[in-house]
Simulated assay, not measured.
Amino acid sequence: MSDENLVPIYTTRDISKADVIRAALEGEGIRCEMENEHQGGFTGVTKVRLFVLEGDKDKAVEFIDVHEDGDETDDPA
């Protein structure tokens, strides 16, 4: 795999939380993409996943672990 491949690092059903994490990662200089961000009236029903470049995965996961309260997962499932 190339460092340019996007890999999943975080999964939640809370779109607001995912958006805050995405913004924080981008503030750290880590490019972050969100899957299922346009849920319409189904917020909380569909899982939202965050993706980063493979080369940034360890840094991103460490950043989330340090700042997260532990109720979500960095499991890409």
Rank of each mutant, 00 (worst) to 15 (best):
L53P: 01
V61D: 03
D58I: 14
D58S: 15
A23Y: 05
A24M: 09
D3E: 13
D69L: 08
F63G: 04
E35Q: 12
T11G: 03
D71Q: 12
V52N: 05
H38Y: 12
D71Y: 11
D14S: 01
N36V: 06
A23Q: 13
I64S: 02
T11Y: 11
C32M: 14
D74S: 10
N36R: 04
A77K: 15
A24P: 02
T73Y: 07
E62I: 03
N5F: 12
D69M: 09
L6V: 03
T12S: 15
V20H: 05
D71P: 04
K47P: 09
G41C: 08
S16T: 00
D19L: 01
C32L: 11
T12N: 05
G44P: 02
P8E: 10
N5T: 02
T12R: 06
E37W: 06
D56R: 10
G41H: 12
D69S: 08
Y10S: 02
G27C: 06
T73K: 08
E4S: 12
A24Y: 09
A23K: 07
D3P: 00
I30R: 06
Q39E: 11
D56T: 08
V61A: 03
D56G: 05
P76K: 09
R13M: 04
E68L: 05
R22V: 01
S16L: 01
K59R: 14
D65R: 12
S2F: 05
P8W: 11
I64H: 03
I64A: 01
V7D: 01
M1A: 12
G70C: 12
D58V: 13
Y10K: 01
D75Q: 14
I30G: 11
G41Q: 08
C32Q: 08
L53K: 12
T11V: 13
V7L: 08
T46R: 08
D75K: 11
T73E: 06
D65G: 14
L50W: 02
E37I: 12
F51G: 06
P8Q: 14
M34R: 01
K17Q: 00
A23G: 05
G55Q: 12
I64F: 10
G40P: 08
R13H: 08
N36L: 07
E26R: 10
E68D: 13
N36G: 11
A18I: 00
R31N: 08
M34G: 04
G29H: 08
L25S: 08
M1H: 02
E4L: 06
D74L: 09
E35D: 14
H67T: 14
I21A: 00
E28K: 13
V61Y: 05
F42V: 04
H38W: 07
M34D: 03
G44C: 10
V20Y: 05
